[in-house]
Each structure stands twice: as structure tokens, then as C-alpha cells.
Amino acid sequence: MKEINEEWPIFEVFIRSKNGLEHRHAGSLHAADSTMAMENARDVYTRRQEGVSIWVVESKHITASNPTEAGEMFEPAKDKVYRHPTFYELPIELKHI
């Protein structure tokens, strides 16, 4: 047996459960390439008609935000209350707005 085995890369799997809905992350799996990843995703994540469409992408191609920087990243949006409809004061007798 060889000392170092090369592991198959990890893929992330996204599934659209039905038309009209977005693809959602379902999980991940190992595969030699994207063709195999697609086949495995079908067998592992859609055994009970959980989807009508599958995306697979090698995990290394995903750039993720850093949770330790979540503060700086998302905090500024918090004090921009004027991005929400309730910021604007209109008389209550006004309808449909």
C-alpha cells in the first residue's frame, strides 16, 4: 500500500427543490471530478425526489467571509435605518403605501 493516498476533492452540493425556488446548499461530498460529483449528489441527496436541479462546485472555488470579521462586515448596515420603510413618516390615513 502506498504511503500517501490522494483524496478526492470536496464538492458542495446545491439543490433546487422545485421550480420557482432557489438552489439551496444541501451538503458536500467527495468526487474525482464534477461529473462524478453530480452522479453522487443525485444518489446521496435526491433519493426521495428532493430536487429538480443540482449544482455542484468544488469547495475550494468558494470564497467565504470571515466570521471573526463579521462585526466590521455587517455592523455598518445596522445604523442605516433609512433603508427601511418604517423610517419614513407618513400620515396613517394614507392607504396603499
Binding site: 493516498n5 490522494e6 478526492w8 474525482a32 471530478d33 462524478m36
Partner: peptide
């Protein structure tokens, strides 16, 4: 694990060649 080793290797080799 042992019996599947050649399959795992062949799949990697095939994927590389295709790339």
C-alpha cells in the same frame, strides 16, 4: 478499502487526464 483502492486511483487519473 483495499479492494476499492484501484478504483479511487483510476478515477483520479481519469479526472486529471480529462482536465
Amino acid at each position: 478499502r483495499d479492494n476499492g483502492e484501484w478504483v479511487r486511483e483510476a478515477a483520479i487519473a481519469h479526472a486529471k487526464k480529462k482536465r
